[in-house]
Design a protein around this nucleic acid. Structure first.
Lengths: 147, 147
DNA sequence: TATTGTTATACTCTATAACTATA
DNA sequence: TATAGTTATAGAGTATAACAATA
């Protein structure tokens, strides 16, 4: 029910620009990862464990939007690499708790460090006004994604 | 050689926030695609052809950052689906020119329409100031990604 | 001989279906 | 019987190596 045509046009083109910019930047960012070259799901698992602590395979498969068998395979790889541990829950022996090892923690922090370093280089080329805009945008984009 | 500590800290955390926000939003955006469920590379090829016109397989493999054999396989699939055509170049018979069919054009436009529609819904909930911030940010982010 | 495109083959990631263990 | 996890098997997507066609 928009009545002002210019607003409608502005908003529509903003969607297109924001979509293109976000997809492009994320694609570039994803290339800046640790030497180990973890897959997106593997990185996602380590990131979730860092942020939220021990989680079950079912919770991780929901978080990463992959099937339980697929997550199981990912966990096998991460466990073999020494990045996560699996322990049976005391309360419910059906549950498995996946936890981050020190090595796993190092890997996820290193990946973030690289992505931040790449972004830092780009941010260093911006002026104060542009930085202020991005500062405001970061929070807004985060909230939009989390809805 | 930063002398103002607060600036350094602000910029560092901006990297982290922008990284998290961008990766998260793009992940959400990628889920809003056409029913055909094209892969990222397939979508990327159709998008490049829409934007830049006919391209060679070599140009497309560079653009999508996959190897020529992998791009060849992708083109076989897109060609079989009726989304692209392959024609030999008149000027240099070694070259193949990949072009978009009407069906291919429809698919890529539909995917964009969906992603824009999802974003539009989120943008509709923002106030004028927030929209202005994102308007400024879109251009800045795009330039950063293209560097 | 160099370049463009393609085929052959193997590896990774993910999915569906079936199985095991615990509640 | 229901739930959590796992194993078995198959389908995409990508990569390296080798081959074909043209310049």
């Amino acid at each position: 029910m928009l009545t002002i045509v210019t607003d409608q046009r502005t908003e529509a083109s903003l969607s297109a620009e924001l979509r293109a910019a976000t997809l492009r930047l994320s694609r570039r960012l994803r290339r800046e990862k640790a030497d180990d070259e973890l897959s997106d799901t593997q990185s996602g698992v380590l990131g979730a464990l860092l942020r939220r602590g021990e989680l079950t395979p079912a919770a991780l498969s929901a978080h990463e939007r992959v099937t339980p068998p697929s997550m199981n395979r990912t966990l096998n790889i991460l466990e073999a690499a020494g990045y996560v541990t699996r322990t049976k829950s005391e309360a419910d022996r059906r549950l498995v708790l996946v936890g981050l090892t020190d090595a796993g923690r190092s890997v996820v922090l290193e990946t973030r460090r690289r992505r931040d370093a790449w972004l830092d280089q780009r941010l260093a080329a911006l002026d104060a006004d542009e930085l202020a805009v991005l500062e405001g945008a970061a929070g807004i984009l985060r909230r939009m994604a989390d809805q």
